[in-house]
Design a protein around this nucleic acid. Structure first.
Length: 707
DNA sequence: GGGTTAACCTTTTTT
DNA sequence: AGGTTAACCC
């Protein structure tokens, strides 16, 4: 059989990994070293070279995007569909298992997925029921703690029995929350993973079936696995012991949400006799960029160690720009992009990267005023928008009337005279009788235990939902959605709303009907289309749905840039406190993760890398004098070209300079001034600060302070 | 029940 | 600063 298409495009290390004998294998794949290629070619080789059935392969990724891409590449390589392979995200695959074995997992067939917003609301409800004050027990924090425990596999009864109020309250909230979820068949994201793990652990026949079935287990971005995910992988790979993990300890940037690099660091211990292969040739960046990134990451300890190299030429030096403030920074960046485009390059080859999403605004304003198209990644996803969640809540209620989160969301939207008083009564009964809000409402109606006005409003609501379920029985998914939007009054409600935003909301709702129309159910599934659509909406909140492939500048956080590459990259906001982020400086052990993030950012660049920082930055409405990021000092000078024209880098407020001839408000670049401390200087740039006060950047004739 | 004002919060993000 | 959310008033 001809396997040249599998092996020819590979270098020696890649080939070694792809063709490795069965057994545990860790591929340490540096940035830009072709890890996805190794993974896909490995799968192709298993199928074509070893005649492994696609059904015996389990391949796990972290994002739906990565999974789609891999699937595409494999079918290209094999020249046939790769549908047999169990490939997907941890959550996607576990969800599938839970759907197939809902009974064994102790779930109702119609169990629902809670996204983090639903989860937050539910936790607040628990707080209300326990009569706890949100001010003392912030729901966000409780949510975070509960998820942390779940991600470590701890159920409420595993928690240490603390004597302090803190521990006891956490326990109470967690236990109550779990009880509610269990009673109404609600499953949050962490639960999907934990429930699946427990299912396999406790159910021997099922466990053995899958252990037998999966002859090969492969995982991408292994450094990002959390404790539960790793246990799940190990359990499934146990029988055949063919565990193929690809990862890079230097790109572990999700420790803050439970990812454990330790899984990677202890791989050889956990899998005795494991092979480790390093992919160290980088095919992405120029020599300067790669060397600089290598230098920065070398400041970290606890690395597995890797030496990335490239055959590329040095390329251009990294350009460093010290901006006066964030506006100057943005202006500089956009200027550079403009000349990049004028040279005949594409805009979508350019990425503006930043540490936190709030930074995007200044860039957006600047891009907008230059009429340059751009796209911001991150921010609210389609299925997370309020109006979409409202519409989905109607659909959920039709599909499962006992869904309390859905009930609460839309019972009075649009308003139909069911106010808080009424709802409190219903909630009380639901809690008392341990029944759902829907059931409680029906009970209230039977017993007529509400004032007449509220009672009739409630009856109308129940009838509306009942009527909608009946009317949509035999309809297609898209027609159901359309029907629900119209008869619920939701569409009308948003149409009546005024303002620019309302327009977009109506469009989004219409887009939802489209999404429903385009939703294809893969293979035979035991569940109805509607339930599958709803699960999918939660699991795949959606990378923006329909993408206009316009030639746009790309704006995104450093986190979302992982896995991508761009010919021209701007790494912005390189300031202490912003990057590394203040919060990471306060917690010990987080600094190295920030440095890895910096490494990830730098290694996104293929040809040109600009690094910028602002000396004054407005943050949360306050102006801060900044200090350049420590990561900058970690880049050896030889790779950097400082392109700020002046040789002193402090912007000067007018209070500290004097000029005899003209009023300060009229100072223009080129004028000579005297600074109290630095002596003679020349105005280099004038900017407008707060209340339009001028801020000057000066070039000094001497560097010796005179005072 | 709707509209207005006051209080609050603010890292990164996938599922 | 800016945005959201909760409390408050008519």
């Amino acid at each position: 059989m001809d396997v040249s298409h599998i092996f020819d495009p590979l270098n020696d290390a890649q080939r070694e990994a792809v063709a490795a004998e069965p057994g545990p294998l860790l591929v340490l794949a540096g940035a830009g070293s072709g890890k996805t290629r190794v993974l896909t070619h490995r799968i192709a080789w298993l199928i074509e070279g070893h005649q492994v059935s696609p059904f015996a392969i389990l391949a796990v990724t972290f994002t739906n995007k990565a999974s789609r891409e891999m699937r595409g590449r494999i079918s290209e390589l094999l020249d046939m569909p790769s549908s047999g392979i169990w490939m997907g995200t941890f959550h996607g695959l576990c969800h599938r298992l839970l759907r197939m074995h809902f009974e064994e997992a102790g779930l109702p067939q119609s169990f629902e997925i809670l996204d983090s917003d639903d989860q937050y609301r539910l936790i607040r409800r628990v707080l209300r029921e326990l009569d706890l004050d949100e001010a003392y027990w912030p729901p966000r924090q409780l949510q975070w703690m509960i998820n942390n425990h779940k991600e470590e596999g701890r159920r409420p009864h595993h928690l240490p029995e603390g004597n302090d109020l803190q521990q006891q309250t956490l326990y109470k909230v967690y236990a109550n929350y779990e009880e509610l979820c269990q009673r109404f068949g609600l499953v949050d994201f962490a639960e999907i993973l934990l429930r699946t793990l427990e299912l396999l652990k406790n159910n021997q026949p099922l466990r053995e079936t899958y252990q037998q079935r999966f002859q090969h287990v492969l995982v991408d971005e292994f450094q990002d696995t959390n404790s539960i995910q790793y246990q799940w992988l190990r359990l499934l790979a146990k029988q055949h012991n063919n565990f193929f993990a690809v990862g890079d300890d230097d790109q572990s940037i999700y420790g803050w949400r439970g990812a454990r690099v330790e899984n990677l660091l202890s791989f050889e211990k956990d899998f005795p006799g494991a092979q480790v292969i390093r992919l160290e040739q980088n095919y992405r960046s120029t020599g300067n960029i790669l060397n600089a990134a290598n230098a920065v990451i070398s400041y970290n300890s606890d690395r597995m160690g890797k030496n990335l190299w490239t055959e590329e030429s040095e390329g251009l030096p990294i350009r460093l720009y010290a901006a006066v403030n964030e506006v100057d920074e943005a202006r500089f960046v956009v200027d550079q992009i403009q000349s990049w485009v004028e040279k005949g390059n594409r805009r979508d080859e350019v990425a503006i990267l930043y540490r936190s999403n709030a930074q995007s605004r200044v860039f957006e304003e600047q891009l907008l005023s230059h009429g340059m198209p751009y796209r911001v990644y991150g921010g609210l996803r389609f299925f997370e928008r309020a109006e979409i969640k409202d519409a989905l809540a109607y659909l959920r209620l039709i599909s499962n009337q006992n869904s309390d989160p859905a009930f609460e969301r839309i019972v009075n939207l649009p308003t139909r005279g069911i106010g808080n008083k009424t709802l409190e009564t219903i909630r009380g009964i639901a809690r008392e009788d341990e029944i759902s809000m829907w059931q409680a409402t029906n009970k209230v109606i039977r017993e007529e235990s509400l004032p007449p006005r509220a009672l009739s409003a409630v009856i109308r609501f129940i009838e509306l939902i009942d009527q909608m379920s009946r009317d949509t029985q035999s309809l297609e998914l898209a027609e159901i959605t359309d029907h629900v939007l119209k008869t619920s009054g939701l569409l009308e409600h948003y149409q009546k709303e005024k303002g620019e935003r309302a327009q977009g909301r109506v469009e989004n709702l219409e887009e939802l009907v489209n999404a429903a129309r385009n939703f294809v159910v893969a293979e035979e599934e035991e569940l109805d289309d509607l339930s599958l659509f709803l699960s999918n909406a939660a699991l795949e909140a959606g990378e923006g749905q329909a993408e206009e492939w316009e030639d746009c500048v790309q704006l995104m956080s450093l986190h979302s840039a992982k896995g991508l590459e761009f010919p021209l990259v701007f790494l912005c906001g390189m300031e202490e406190g912003l990057f590394p982020h203040q919060r990471s400086l306060e917690e010990s052990g987080r600094l190295e993760e920030e440095r890895r993030l910096c490494y990830v950012g730098m290694t996104r660049a293929m040809q040109e890398l600009y690094i910028c920082y602002a000396e004054i930055r407005r943050l949360y409405g306050r102006e801060h004098y900044t200090q350049a990021s420590r990561f900058l000092t970690e880049v050896p000078k030889e790779y950097i070209e400082d392109i700020r024209s002046s040789n002193i880098s402090r912007p000067i407020f007018r209070s500290s300079i004097t000029n005899e001839e003209s009023p300060l408000a009229k100072l223009q670049p080129g004028r000579h001034v005297r600074h109290q401390k630095f002596g003679e200087g020349m105005v280099d740039l004038v900017l407008r600060g707060r209340e339009n006060m001028p801020v000057f950047r000066l070039t000094f004739l001497t560097l010796v302070p005179s005072g």
